[in-house]
Design a protein around this nucleic acid. Sequence first.
DNA 1: CAGTGGTCTAGACCACCGA
DNA 2: CGGTGGTCTAGACCACTGA
Lengths: 270, 270
Amino acid sequence: MAEVHQGRELGGPISRLPLAHVARRLQDMRNMLLYKEVKEKIIQALSEGKWQAGDKLPVESDLADMYGVSKSTIRAAVGELVDANILVRKQGKGTFVATEKVSRNLYRFFHLVDASGKRHYPVRQLLSISREAATEKTIDALQLYRYSDRDVFSIHMLFKINGRAVGRSNPCVPVALFPGLDAKEFQPDDVSLYSLYHTMYNINVIRVEANVGVSSATPAVARELGVRPQAPLLRIERIAYTYQDVPVEYRTILLDTSEIQYRIEQGSSV
Amino acid sequence: MAEVHQGRELGGPISRLPLAHVARRLQDMRNMLLYKEVKEKIIQALSEGKWQAGDKLPVESDLADMYGVSKSTIRAAVGELVDANILVRKQGKGTFVATEKVSRNLYRFFHLVDASGKRHYPVRQLLSISREAATEKTIDALQLYRYSDRDVFSIHMLFKINGRAVGRSNPCVPVALFPGLDAKEFQPDDVSLYSLYHTMYNINVIRVEANVGVSSATPAVARELGVRPQAPLLRIERIAYTYQDVPVEYRTILLDTSEIQYRIEQGSSV
DNA sequence: CAGTGGTCTAGACCACCGA
DNA sequence: CGGTGGTCTAGACCACTGA
């Protein structure tokens, strides 16, 4: 039988050497899956600008040859990049580097519904953004000891539905991860900050942890939301993480839930 | 070449007919992926009790033979069930039907933390259980039109941490799905109602939808929780679903979040 | 050691796209 | 029609488990 795939580098001269595979054998799969290695290499090539936003990648069989792996392995690697909104597959056309609008990440972790259960998509209004020293709590949440620069950009924004303010949010992100963020233009039609993080800084939020409680409105917040001072508000304190559990954003959301409610879905449908 | 896999049912008598595959060819893949079909069939077998909680499933190659597909397809199907916490894979041992304990289902959808982020596991205290006619809202949430008997069992219980009541819950379940529930003994050491649903009725909650807002305490609730009347409470209205999006429980949770907060985790770590 | 899940390969055939 | 991504197969070899 010449069917011994995994040992055939010993069998004699073969034109297409599965280099990645050989390397993996040699290092005894120290830590990473082959398709993960390929994924990292593709990310590397992307960050080096080998393929720019909107560009078409080589077809999958060519990618397989380029990286010395099978098409299935390429598909696993590319598949995760598609899940991460970094690449986009188009059947019959090819695989492309994602552009901003393509990733409809919008409100993946933030859903609002009214009493009837109907989903609402608030528009956000940027009030301010400034560079600040982080508070104790923020240092802890964002693990700022990772960086030499421990300042954060502190953003204030409002959520509005039908012109009425229903909530406000105060995201803080490490300056070290988002250099120059305060100088970027915030497009009012950007659907969410997370899509901005992705398109401008290639940082993907893949997971969030949130603590939910009740707060009463301070005078300033009451003015912003048009409620009476001391009015009870839903308070959501949320940490957003990217790969390898690196926290990238800490935000406090305050919601007036008299007309809308915060929606959570957990578990997967079968 | 005898390598034409997909057409070999035309080649003559073959011992192992890939029935699922042939069927799929015949119906021209009307809508579903093969591995999704297999997944559905496994779910069907599970809901019929073919494999009970904790049971070991046949090895993957046997499953492949049973369903007339390849091991890769079985792995795709089983993999999604593992992701959904329905099955558990153990390398070198086998694949098993998830138990509450293994899947850490207890409080899977209900986490409480204090200000320092420390997790707390409240004890629950049953106040009452009674058979009632469902309200409009409950009929809607539980889709009671599915059943001829549209009554529900309405349960009242308290959550306590260190002896102090921090919340109360009012689960309602269809009498049609949980016959005789009011006569069952509720062990105070049952970790959650969901484990009871699972062990006594073989009903697995795999997904929840929740709407979160703020309410003020009615006099009765204020007495239960030891807060002043009108005190703001976190209100969680939650529908729990089993397989095939069948709702099995509708509950309203009221929490005093002055000392604890409701914890949500979404997305998966990579 | 045998049995099991975990990873990967090579290649077949499909559905879809646009010229 | 050719090119592309999408799905599936058969089988090899690996790492892990427990007797």
